Simulated scan of single mutants.
Amino acid sequence: MLSLLAGVALYWTQVYAFYHEARFEPGAEIALTPIFGATPEVIVAENIKGIDAESSPLRFRACFHTPLSQAMLTETYQVYDTAEPLVAPSWFDCFDAQRIGSALQSGEAIAFLSVQDIVPGIDRVVAVFPNGDAFAWHQLNDKLKDNPNARFAD
């Protein structure tokens, strides 16, 4: 019985605890990094829903809509070729990592660099579908993948 309670507590901690609603107020809006520049620029993002957690920067996820076309975005902002959406908790049902990943592989969706090193070794990535549905998440960048201790060097 004790192990069952411990298992339930562990599950609840991993799936529900620590998460909070992400805020997208001035200074924390959805942004993309221009092709010619390093400073991310805020883009039009509507109906944003997001989650985040203090326990790990990799827990950030967001769903939103943008009226900006993929053509305009690819001419203006850096494409992110190594995008790998991370699975969100099942209760955050607007974010389907498998669907997003498949769409990125097929070319239906396009991923962009939002913020490089939003936390040392971790990038914010945004994927945009042709209909304007868009999704954001954090993922390890090459710096941290190549050297797991790199975040401590900064």
Rank of each mutant, 00 (worst) to 15 (best):
T76E: 05
F95W: 08
D123M: 07
E21G: 03
G37S: 04
S56Q: 09
A103I: 01
A6N: 02
A53Y: 04
L104R: 02
M72Y: 11
E54H: 08
P148W: 04
R59L: 13
W12T: 14
L68E: 12
P26G: 11
M72I: 06
G101I: 06
L113A: 05
E108A: 04
A97I: 11
Q98S: 09
Y77R: 05
C63R: 02
Y16F: 15
R61M: 04
V42R: 15
P34S: 01
A103Y: 01
R151V: 09
M72V: 07
T39G: 00
R61F: 14
R124T: 14
F152M: 14
Q14I: 09
G27C: 07
E108Y: 03
V44Q: 12
F135H: 13
A28C: 00
L2G: 06
P40C: 08
E54V: 05
V42W: 00
D146L: 13
P67I: 04
A153Q: 14
P130A: 12
I43F: 06
P40S: 08
F64P: 01
G121Y: 05
V128W: 01
I118M: 08
N147P: 01
E41M: 07
N131M: 06
Y80I: 02
R99T: 15
P40N: 10
S106K: 02
Q116H: 12
L140V: 04
R59D: 08
P89R: 07
F60E: 07
A6K: 09
L73W: 09
G132W: 05
L2V: 14
Y80S: 04
P85C: 04
S114K: 04
A53P: 02
L86K: 13
A17Q: 14
A53M: 02
A28G: 05
F64R: 03
S90G: 11
D142S: 13
A127L: 11
W137A: 07
L5K: 05
F18C: 05
D146Y: 00
W137Q: 03
W12D: 07
N47Q: 15
I118F: 11
W12C: 07
A109L: 01
A111N: 10
H65M: 11
T82I: 06
S102G: 11
T39C: 00
L10Q: 02
S55E: 13
D146V: 00
G121R: 13
A88F: 09
T39M: 09
V128M: 03
A136I: 02
T66G: 11
A28P: 00
S90A: 14
L73S: 10
E84M: 08
P130G: 10
T82G: 03
S114V: 01
D93Q: 11
R124P: 00
P85D: 10
P40M: 12
N47H: 12
F36G: 03
E41A: 04
I35E: 06
A22L: 05
T33Q: 12
F18D: 14
C63Q: 06
S55L: 10
L2C: 05
L10S: 12
W137D: 08
Q105Y: 02
I30Q: 10
D154P: 01
V125H: 11
V128S: 07
Q105K: 10
A103D: 14
T13Y: 13
